[in-house]
């Protein structure tokens, strides 16, 4: 409780500081009439929203409401799933990700992703895991050239101090929370503009969760973060704007404070007050 209160106060002071500073907020991502299917089953229904740069956008909603599918559409990962199909537009700085001439591989380098379960590459060392996004897209790379990136990414992911003496050990030797931060470091290493997080804390204990949340607040200075979460408190703690999804539709999307204090839609209110979900 104390932790939470401190964190909350910390977060508020920070968001005030951000609000006071003349930050240039722009719409980095514009989603227009996006629908997504698995085979014949519609998971996302005609969704439209804009994502602000250098901020944290949370997507909340009950299980199966399509929120994971939705963010998988934002870096063209949905089409990797069996039967995955997408209609509509997603504009990244005005350019449609789903245009015919766009290479999904290129998109995924600009829009990174962290998954629910820490997906460390089991055969690789900690170092190689962080470097993988770079080394596996070049034909050839020297370890020396990667050293800087690996160190910088691990520092940004607040993991450097814990692993700097065992970079050659297997990534699988880390704890769950460390593995998830390793995945974040790995995503940061390729210098994306946007980082998507699909319930990044749902498999972690409260302490690790706290660390990841602090990390999110830290990296939003440089990156745009979109997080899907089951956890409404988490959305309230870290995000600047919150979207509430239900049955594939975006019910409400507004600054986080408004969504949690004066929701406009009855269904949002019912959900955040715990009447269902």
């Amino acid at each position: 409780m104390v932790h939470e209160a401190v964190n909350q106060a910390d977060k508020e002071s920070r968001s005030e500081a951000v609000a006071a500073a003349p930050v240039h907020v722009r719409n980095i991502l514009e989603v227009k009439n996006l629908s997504a299917w698995y085979g014949n089953m519609m998971a996302v229904n005609n969704l439209t929203m804009s994502i602000h740069s250098r901020s944290i956008t949370a997507i909340i909603g009950p299980s199966g409401c399509g929120k994971s599918t939705f963010i998988r559409c934002l870096n063209r990962m949905h089409e990797v799933s069996d039967g995955g199909r997408v209609e509509g537009k997603v504009l990244l700085d005005g350019k449609d990700l789903y245009a015919r001439d766009v290479d999904p591989v290129e998109i995924r380098r600009r829009i990174g992703m962290v998954f629910q379960k820490p997906s460390v590459f089991p055969t690789m060392s900690i170092f190689d895991n962080v470097a993988s996004g770079i080394s596996l897209t070049r034909l050839w790379s020297r370890k020396r050239d990667l050293q800087d990136v690996v160190e910088r990414s691990l520092k940004k992911a607040a993991l450097w101090e814990e692993v700097k003496d065992k970079l050659n050990q297997s990534g699988g030797s880390l704890s769950g929370g460390q593995q998830q931060r390793l995945c974040i470091a790995r995503a940061i290493a390729i210098a994306p503009e946007i980082i998507l997080m699909d319930e990044p804390c749902s498999a972690l204990d409260p302490i690790s969760t706290l660390k990841i949340e602090e990390l999110m607040l830290e990296i939003k200075k440089d990156y745009t973060v979109i997080i899907v979460t089951h956890n409404m408190q988490q959305a309230a703690r870290v995000s600047d704007r919150t979207g509430f999804m239900l049955l594939g539709e975006l019910i409400e999307y507004a600054p986080t404070k408004e969504v949690f204090t004066v929701p406009k839609d009855k269904r949002t209110e019912d959900y955040i007050t715990g009447r269902f979900g």
Binding site: G112, F115, G133, L136, I190
Partner: peptide, 29 residues
């Protein structure tokens, strides 16, 4: 080799063939 590992590789912008050669095959070696 778990599917999550494949997806993680693709999500890093690693081309499909490199994901197979660099991540899946070492895991199955």
């Amino acid at each position: 080799v778990p599917n999550s590992v494949r997806e993680a590789a693709l999500a890093l912008g690693i081309p499909r063939w490199r994901a197979v050669v660099g991540v899946v095959i070492p895991g199955a070696l």
